[in-house]
């Protein structure tokens, strides 16, 4: 008998399904083969060890009671638990997923009006006063553009016909009259425009002042709520970020600049009267040290606007 066959029989010996004849064959082989002999002895020992390990546990008499103690006073699982357990079965997960997807599809894809309604709702949430103010500013801007256009046309006529300037003003077009009427009607709104914007106030440099035919009516366009100039700056070369903002009434102005990690590097809080102002940043922190190159976020909050602006500092 070959060693390979004996090895197979030895494995069967551990399993316990070996005939007496086969065992006799093994015994005959191991007398002449030392290696198989060692394997045979080890297999017998292993079988004995397994047999010894078949010991029975010694259970305490109050085993059941101890189990119930552990379970505690808990009653049988509640109906809700059972329903939840049933729903959590994988059989229900796929249909539930399909149902949810169908609802979402039905709501937002088949009926996009819902989304648009939501957007409209959100848009209308903007304060009505602010909207009216914007409309007013747009109207005035249009009027000013029109007057400027007409004036330039008139000036050309003056050069060619050399009439007296005052006459031209008297012969103003109907359109100009219309604008003036509009300005007169909106004089109440004009009064709201802060004083620094009117006349030769330096702070109001961004606001061109155009006088119409009637000198008592001054149409003054208001600047945008915020103007940002040069938001890529090189602090070493003295370049500056300029943020121009407007206050219609006295109000608190808050400007903070954050680096990329969210750390505030510049703080500016001040209560200012109505007017147009400029905030200038030279790429320095509160202590006056030049900041490292990178992207910075400028947060500005006025009674009119709250905005975040990205600015890059290069060196």
């Amino acid at each position: 008998m070959s060693c390979k066959k004996v090895n197979g029989l030895i494995n069967s010996l551990i399993e316990g399904n070996i005939s007496a004849a086969e065992e006799a064959e093994i015994k005959a082989h191991v007398k002449t083969c030392q290696k198989c002999g060692a394997e045979y002895k080890a297999a017998l020992a292993l079988k004995n060890v397994f047999s010894d390990m078949k010991e029975e546990p010694k259970l305490p008499a109050d085993f059941n009671l101890k189990v119930w103690d552990r379970i505690g006073a808990a009653s049988s699982p509640s109906l809700a638990d059972r329903i939840l357990g049933y729903i959590r079965k994988p059989v229900f997960i796929a249909p539930a997923g399909v149902l949810v997807a169908a609802v979402i599809f039905g709501l937002f894809v088949m009926n996009p009006g819902v989304v648009q309604d939501k957007k409209a709702e959100l848009a209308s949430a903007e304060p009505a006063v602010k909207t009216a103010e914007k409309q007013e500013i747009t109207k005035i801007k249009k009027a000013v553009t029109y007057i400027a256009q007409k004036q330039s046309e008139d000036e050309k006529q003056i050069v060619s016909a050399e009439p007296v300037k005052e006459d031209i003003i008297k012969e103003e077009s109907k359109d100009i009259l219309k604008v003036n009427q509009f300005a007169a009607v909106n004089s109440a709104a004009d009064e709201k425009i802060p004083q620094p914007l009117k006349g030769n106030n330096e702070k109001a440099s961004a606001a061109p002042v155009i006088a119409a035919a009637d000198k008592s009516i001054v149409v003054t366009p208001t600047p945008a709520e915020i103007e940002v100039k040069n938001n890529v700056i090189n602090g070493v070369k003295g370049e500056r970020l300029v943020i121009k903002y407007r206050l219609d009434n006295e109000g608190q102005v808050e400007i903070r600049i954050y680096d990329r990690t969210g750390r505030p590097v510049v703080h500016f809080y001040e209560k200012k009267p109505a007017g147009v102002y400029e905030f200038i940043w030279e790429g320095k922190d509160d202590s006056g040290s030049l900041l490292a190159s990178g992207i910075y976020t400028v947060y500005i909050k006025t009674p009119l606007v709250e905005k975040k602006i990205k600015s890059a500092v290069i060196r």
Binding site: E56, P57, F63, V67
Partner: peptide, 27 residues
């Protein structure tokens, strides 16, 4: 209980721990 405790004993190799484990199994 005997069957469960017997399996636990083979793993835990200690009668007391096996009983403890068997109780937890039933919980």
């Amino acid at each position: 209980k005997r069957t469960v405790a017997s399996v636990c004993l083979k793993y835990m190799r200690n009668n007391e721990e096996a009983c403890d484990m068997a109780q937890e199994v039933f919980c």
